[in-house]
Computed example of a mutant assay.
Amino acid sequence: MTAGNTGSDTPGNDDPFGYLYRSEGGEEGAGGDGATRQQGVPRTSYNQVRAVGERQYGGASQQPGYGRQNASYAAPETLPGGDRSRPQAAPPAPPQRNHKGLLIGAVAVVGVVCIAIGVAMLNNSDKKGTEDTAQPSESVSASTEPEKKPADKPSEAPLPKDDAGSLKLAGGATTSKDIPGAQSAGGVYVAGMNNPGASATWTLNVEKADSYKMWVQYGIPGKDQNLTVTVNGKRDDRPINMGNFKGSEEGAWDKGWQNTWQQVNLNKGTNTVMLSCEDGNKCDVNIDQLWLKPLH
C-alpha cells in the first residue's frame, strides 16, 4: 500500500503523489474529516504541504507567521558555551608572578637553613668539647695550678773595653795627649813604650772561660811595630803585630792611628793581659784602647 492508498481506494487513485492535489476532506479511513473525496480535487490530508514554519506539535494547532520560531527554540548564544560563530572574549591573562620576590624568598629560606645548620654544628661542637675536657676532680685541680715558667736566662754582660788611662803602667811607660786623634777619653794615650821593660797591664773580667779576640787601638810613625803579649802570667810566643796597615807616611804620628787583634785564652772571672817591650820587639808605638770580641 502506497502513501496515498488507505486500502479502499480504486487502483486509479493509487497515486503515490496524490497527496499533493487531493482535497483536505478525504474519505474516511484515509485520515480525512469524513467528507467524500471528489475525483480530481486535491485532498487536504495530514500530508498536505504547508508553508515553512507551520507545524503541529503535541496535537495543538499552531499557525505562527513565516519565520516565527517555535517556543521551545533557544538561540545558540543563550545556550551553554554560547555561539561559537561569534568572536569570543579573550580569557583573562594569568597573574604575573613576582620573580624577584620569589628569588628573595628562596635566598631567605636558604639563609635560614644555613644558619640552623651552623647553630646545630656549634652546639654539637660545644657539647663534644665539654665531654672531651671533662676530667676527674683530681685532674681538674691539677690543671688549675699555675704553670711554672723557666727562669729567664740572664743576659750576658758586654765584653770589657777600656781606655789607656785605666791601664797599669810600668818600666817607663806613661800617659800623654800630645798627639791628636786618640779615641780614649780626653785624648789620653800610653806613651814611652819604646823602652826595654816598659809595660801596660789590662785587668778585665769575663763570665766564661773561652778564647777571645783582643783588639788594640794604637799609633805608629808610619813604620811596622810589635809588642810581647802575656796572659795571666803566661808569655805568648807570638808578638802582637802592629803594622802600618793604613800606609801612613813615615813620621806622621797623627795619621798612624789604627787597630789590630790577637787571640787570647781567658779564664772565667778576672784576667790580666800585659803588653810589654821585650828583646826582639820594635816598640816605637803608642797605646790608645783595648777591648774584647768573641773569637767565633
Results as ranks from 00 to 15, higher is better:
Thr260Ser: 14
Lys149Val: 14
Asn124Val: 09
Thr133Lys: 14
Pro146Phe: 11
Ser8Lys: 12
Thr260Asn: 10
Gln63Trp: 14
Thr44Arg: 14
Met193Ser: 00
Asp14Lys: 09
Pro150Cys: 04
Ser125Asp: 13
Asp178Phe: 09
Leu290Arg: 07
Ser85Thr: 15
Asp152Leu: 13
Asp224Leu: 01
Pro154Thr: 08
Lys213Glu: 09
Gln225Gly: 02
Val273Asn: 03
Met193Asn: 02
Val110Gly: 11
Val52Ile: 11
Ala75Gly: 06
Asp236Ile: 06
Phe245Asp: 15
Ala74Pro: 02
Gly18Ser: 08
Val109Ser: 10
Ser141Lys: 15
Gly53Phe: 01
Asn70Met: 12
Trp261Phe: 13
Gly247Leu: 00
Trp253Pro: 00
Tyr189Asp: 05
Leu275His: 01
Gly81His: 00
Gly222Ser: 03
Gly172His: 00
Val110Thr: 15
Glu28Ala: 12
Pro150Gly: 07
Gly53Tyr: 00
Leu103Glu: 13
Val273His: 00
Asp162Thr: 09
Asn47Lys: 11
Arg37Lys: 12
Asp163Trp: 02
Pro294Gln: 10
Gly280Thr: 02
Gly251Phe: 03
Asp33Ala: 13
Gly81Trp: 00
Leu79Val: 03
Met1His: 13
Asn281Val: 00
Ser166Gln: 14
Asp254Asn: 14
Asn123Tyr: 10
Gln263Phe: 06
Thr228Ala: 14
Ala182Ser: 14
Ser248Pro: 00
Pro64Val: 04
Leu275Lys: 01
Thr201Ala: 05
Met242Thr: 03
Ser143Lys: 14
Gln69Asn: 10
Asn205Asp: 09
Pro136Gln: 08
Val231Asp: 02
Asp236Gly: 12
Ser176Val: 06
Glu147Ser: 12
Gln63Arg: 15
Lys213Tyr: 11
Asn244Pro: 05
Tyr73Ser: 10
Gln38Pro: 08
Pro158Asn: 08
Gly82Cys: 01
Ala151Asn: 10
Met214Asp: 06
Gln88Val: 03
Lys168Val: 08
Ile117His: 06
Leu122His: 11
Gln225Asp: 03
Val273Leu: 08
Pro64Leu: 09
Asp152Gly: 12
Val188Asn: 14
Glu250Gln: 10
Ser45Leu: 10
Met242Ile: 09
Asn265Gly: 08
Asn244Ile: 01
Asn244Phe: 00
Ala89Gly: 12
Pro221Gly: 05
Asn205Leu: 03
Pro180Lys: 11
Leu122Lys: 13
Pro180Asn: 09
Lys177Gln: 15
Ser211Met: 09
Gly32Arg: 04
Asp178Tyr: 15
Glu207Ala: 13
Gln48Arg: 15
Gly12Thr: 07
Lys100Pro: 06
Arg37Ser: 10
Ser61His: 14
Arg43Met: 09
Gln96His: 04
Asn98Pro: 04
Pro180Asp: 10
Gln38Phe: 06
Asn194Ala: 03
Val229Pro: 01
Gly58Pro: 04
Ala157Gln: 11
Ala89Phe: 07
Arg235Ile: 05
Leu20Met: 07
Pro294Phe: 05
Leu79Ile: 04
Lys153Asp: 07
Thr2Cys: 13
Ala108Gly: 14
